Amino acid sequence: MHLSALLCVLVFVLGVAFASDATEWSFVTTNNNGKRVGVVIGLKRRSMLLIPDEDKTNKRCSTRTINQHDFDTGYVAMKDPVKRSCWLKPLGERETYEETKRIIDSGKEMMQTDENWIIPKRYLKKGQVKREVGSLLADFCSDSDVYMLKRDTLGRTRRSRSCTRNCGICAVAAKHQQ
């Protein structure tokens, strides 16, 4: 009798644990320098999938990426499924589950901010990706060449790039309303 009650409690606890990590889907608008883009967000406690609408106004300078955030490892993978490239970078200190959930629940518009990163010439080996950022992002990028971005502290990318509209190098934060 005690064993069956214990099993029932265990099943209930496991059910709650698995249910709490369910994906919560949201449709939001982001603002990148005055340009509004629709975004689908799949948010879990440990990760977030971000899928922006296509930007048809500036095809030459815009790369549409699908972004997978891993809150546990502190990295985001930005994947261009057309070119089969995947870029990895550390999450910003405000890019957390709690902050993202707060922005979505508040109904505020999200703000994208450009960041300067350097893309190395060599891509990472598959085993190295898993060691550096874990299996979630390694699996997400498994069909692509993977590059670990390096922060551009000298501002080299701004001078050398003719195109600055690349969703592969954006961070998302809440838009401050005045």
Score class of each variant (00 low, 15 high):
93 E>V: 05
114 D>A: 09
9 V>F: 11
73 T>I: 14
23 T>M: 08
175 K>L: 07
65 T>R: 08
126 K>W: 02
155 G>N: 07
43 L>Y: 03
111 M>C: 06
26 S>C: 00
125 K>N: 06
43 L>I: 06
106 S>G: 04
6 L>A: 08
3 L>W: 01
69 H>M: 11
159 R>P: 00
116 N>C: 14
155 G>R: 05
142 S>I: 03
125 K>A: 14
148 M>G: 03
48 M>P: 03
92 G>T: 09
148 M>L: 15
82 V>W: 04
5 A>I: 08
83 K>W: 06
131 R>D: 14
119 I>D: 08
85 S>H: 14
158 R>V: 13
45 R>F: 15
77 A>R: 10
129 V>E: 09
46 R>F: 09
48 M>F: 03
168 G>Q: 12
16 V>S: 06
25 W>C: 00
21 D>N: 15
147 Y>W: 11
96 T>W: 10
44 K>G: 02
114 D>E: 07
80 D>W: 12
135 S>E: 14
6 L>S: 04
64 R>I: 09
118 I>Q: 12
167 C>L: 13
49 L>K: 03
171 A>S: 12
133 V>H: 11
40 V>E: 04
57 T>Y: 05
9 V>A: 13
9 V>Y: 08
112 Q>A: 14
73 T>H: 13
100 T>G: 01
94 R>W: 11
101 K>Y: 04
55 D>T: 09
177 Q>M: 07
165 R>D: 10
68 Q>M: 15
9 V>D: 01
61 C>N: 14
85 S>Q: 14
113 T>F: 08
164 T>Y: 11
122 R>E: 15
127 G>E: 10
96 T>V: 05
20 S>K: 10
29 T>V: 01
152 D>M: 07
54 E>F: 04
82 V>D: 11
165 R>S: 08
173 A>K: 14
141 C>A: 07
107 G>H: 00
31 N>H: 02
98 E>D: 13
67 N>Q: 13
90 P>K: 15
68 Q>G: 02
148 M>K: 14
161 R>Q: 15
163 C>D: 04
82 V>L: 11
113 T>G: 12
1 M>N: 03
169 I>H: 12
110 M>I: 06
71 F>Y: 14
129 V>A: 12
16 V>A: 07
118 I>T: 15
1 M>P: 01
3 L>M: 03
103 I>M: 05
144 S>M: 04
53 D>P: 00
5 A>C: 02
2 H>Q: 05
54 E>I: 07
102 R>A: 15
27 F>L: 01
130 K>A: 15
122 R>M: 09
30 T>S: 06
119 I>F: 05
135 S>G: 08
83 K>E: 14
65 T>W: 03
86 C>Y: 10
169 I>A: 09
